[in-house]
Computed example of a mutant assay.
Amino acid sequence: MSIPTARSIDVRGLLTDHSLEMTGKDVPHLLEARTSIPQGTRINVTFLENEDLRVRIRAARTVRDLGFVPVPHISARRFDSEAMLEEYLGALQADGAVDHVFAVGGDPATPHGPYGDALSVIASGVLQRYGVRSASIAGYPDGHPDISEAELWAALTDKAAALHEQGLAGGIITQFGFDVDPVIAWVEEVRRRGITLPIRVGVPGPAGIRRLVRYASRFGIGTSAGIAKKYGFSITNLVGTAGPDKFIGELAERLDPGLHGGVKLHFYTFGGLGATSSWITDRQKEAQR
């Protein structure tokens, strides 16, 4: 689907300096897709329960070796001890892959060790001791199924303040969504609260429709019918692939740099790094026509 020329400059701006996400086991896919990814692209490396330290470090090292910027995830509640976190940060530092991290609470309902949330990691001062210069934090425009809205806003405000107090640069990466309305409202509320950190809006890369609906359901992001209506596919036909054309086009139309500040895109590559990178390249070419 072509993006209308009337908003092509805005779309190009959104697609420029995008970031990507991969798992530790995606290294072969990254190697295959490397020529389609611009040098210097930020690539987040997730912290999955079924991947060990060796897998995560290898992924971050490969990102760096290929000329991209590794952003390893620090999943606070998954660390059994301070020593485990320091081992991870030390290994990243030894490989020159620790400048930027993404600090997040993580999935476990009960912390495995001393860190109950991302704030406790940021406030501890351990990140700077191992050379971290910038820490991104999570944002939830569609809310969180297990955390109240008031708690989410308090956590975001406290984490932004802690980054400033610790002398760390940072940014906000949001959970992926399908509806522009809550994203715009959320960004405006972030700015109203005086939080000036740059924001990367989470976007699902092109992927199978069934997979998109499954992930959205898992994270409590709307109903299947609502997703279909906003994202532009039919809930009666879940065969095929859907891309974020409609979402990005509407987001570009509605963003106002003077009001919303710095906003970029972060792609969750459910359909694969190669498919997402090719999709971005194609849309950039369309936007130049």
Results as ranks from 00 to 15, higher is better:
residue 57 I to E: 00
residue 152 L to I: 15
residue 245 D to I: 05
residue 230 K to L: 04
residue 222 G to P: 12
residue 153 W to T: 13
residue 151 E to L: 13
residue 214 R to A: 06
residue 201 V to M: 04
residue 167 G to P: 11
residue 192 R to F: 08
residue 81 S to T: 15
residue 149 E to G: 00
residue 59 A to C: 05
residue 268 Y to M: 03
residue 224 S to W: 03
residue 127 L to E: 08
residue 45 V to Q: 01
residue 39 Q to W: 02
residue 282 D to N: 12
residue 104 V to E: 03
residue 85 L to R: 04
residue 148 S to K: 09
residue 140 Y to M: 00
residue 230 K to F: 01
residue 260 H to A: 02
residue 54 R to K: 09
residue 22 M to W: 07
residue 280 I to A: 01
residue 188 E to P: 13
residue 118 A to S: 15
residue 208 G to P: 13
residue 21 E to C: 01
residue 56 R to A: 06
residue 75 S to D: 08
residue 196 T to C: 06
residue 263 V to T: 07
residue 21 E to G: 10
residue 171 G to R: 10
residue 155 A to P: 10
residue 202 G to T: 07
residue 241 T to M: 02
residue 158 D to A: 15
residue 84 M to T: 13
residue 136 S to Y: 11
residue 182 P to C: 00
residue 264 K to D: 05
residue 79 F to M: 11
residue 104 V to W: 08
residue 234 S to P: 06
residue 134 S to E: 15
residue 137 I to Y: 04
residue 152 L to Q: 12
residue 132 V to F: 07
residue 125 G to W: 14
residue 7 R to L: 08
residue 234 S to D: 15
residue 45 V to I: 15
residue 269 T to L: 04
residue 81 S to A: 06
residue 101 V to H: 09
residue 211 R to M: 07
residue 205 G to F: 12
residue 50 N to S: 01
residue 183 V to S: 02
residue 77 R to L: 06
residue 25 K to G: 01
residue 162 A to Y: 11
residue 287 A to G: 14
residue 234 S to A: 08
residue 74 I to H: 09
residue 189 E to C: 03
residue 262 G to F: 05
residue 155 A to F: 04
residue 133 R to E: 10
residue 10 D to Y: 11
residue 214 R to E: 09
residue 99 D to K: 15
residue 273 L to R: 01
residue 252 A to C: 07
residue 12 R to Y: 05
residue 136 S to L: 09
residue 172 I to E: 08
residue 163 L to N: 06
residue 106 G to Q: 06
residue 189 E to P: 07
residue 111 P to I: 14
residue 77 R to A: 03
residue 179 D to N: 12
residue 45 V to H: 00
residue 96 G to H: 11
residue 156 L to W: 08
residue 286 E to W: 02
residue 282 D to F: 09
residue 31 L to D: 06
residue 185 A to F: 11
residue 229 K to C: 00
residue 144 H to I: 13
residue 158 D to R: 10
residue 9 I to R: 10
